[in-house]
Design a protein around this nucleic acid. Structure first.
Lengths: 109, 109
DNA sequence: GCTTACCGTAAGTCATGGCTTACCAAGAAG
DNA sequence: CTTCTTGGTAAGCCATGACTTACGGTAAGC
């Protein structure tokens, strides 16, 4: 749910591959497994991580479980990145000012 | 440089903490170290990873090295997220269409 | 020149996490 | 009811990577 968990979840190549597979439509664990180079239990474990990070949803249909991308999942990460981004930009401006403002003190450009 | 490396770099809590410290202004390795719960060499190693991921810049000043956030670094991650996001949104529309379009074929609501 | 501050690298230790096989539970099918 | 499919969980193995101490190399200060 927190952006930290999202980043941890997205750090693994297999999990990213799973998300890529879910990009177009919901799939079952079995369907996801055949597209992955790892075993089905491994996929299950990855799906658990993705779910806890809020990146996927599950929908049970009998014995099958359809996983789909949770659209709000990336929201928190995006919010964090936006905030960070603006701070970095402000810091960049301040750095410029500090350097060139100092070397020619008194100017107002 | 690739988004994979960015995600891997951002997955570590200490590296995120370092990036938080650099959020407002450039700092030396020593300055970064005192703010971290790990040793100075550990910080150096993390900075190497961050640099290879394109997330930080270095500026040498005598024996000191000032690290700062590389603004284009986050851009790559944003681009990746944006691309993925748009596809997911499109797939969501298609999924809605597939379900409600199918279960009542012929209607146009 | 000598010493001190700054910092990157090497080598080794140890925990984390990703993978496997084995197992178990629940619904579908016959 | 029995059998097959589907998939989550447990236990164990092993590679990766995060950390440490020790070292070396360069610039600054005296």
């Amino acid at each position: 749910m927190a952006y930290q968990e999202v980043l941890t979840a997205l750090a693994d190549p297999t999990r990213r591959h799973i998300l890529e597979s879910l990009r177009n439509k919901p799939l079952t664990v079995g369907q996801l497994s055949v597209a992955q180079p790892v075993s089905r239990p491994a996929v299950s474990q990855h799906l658990k991580v993705l779910q806890q990070a809020g990146l996927v949803n599950v929908e049970t249909a009998g014995t099958r479980r359809f996983y789909s991308v949770r659209r709000e999942g990336l929201g928190e990460l995006r919010t964090y990145l936006d905030g960070y981004w603006s701070d970095v930009l402000a810091a960049y401006g301040a750095e410029i000012e500090r350097r060139f403002g100092d070397e020619n003190a008194g100017t107002d450009h």
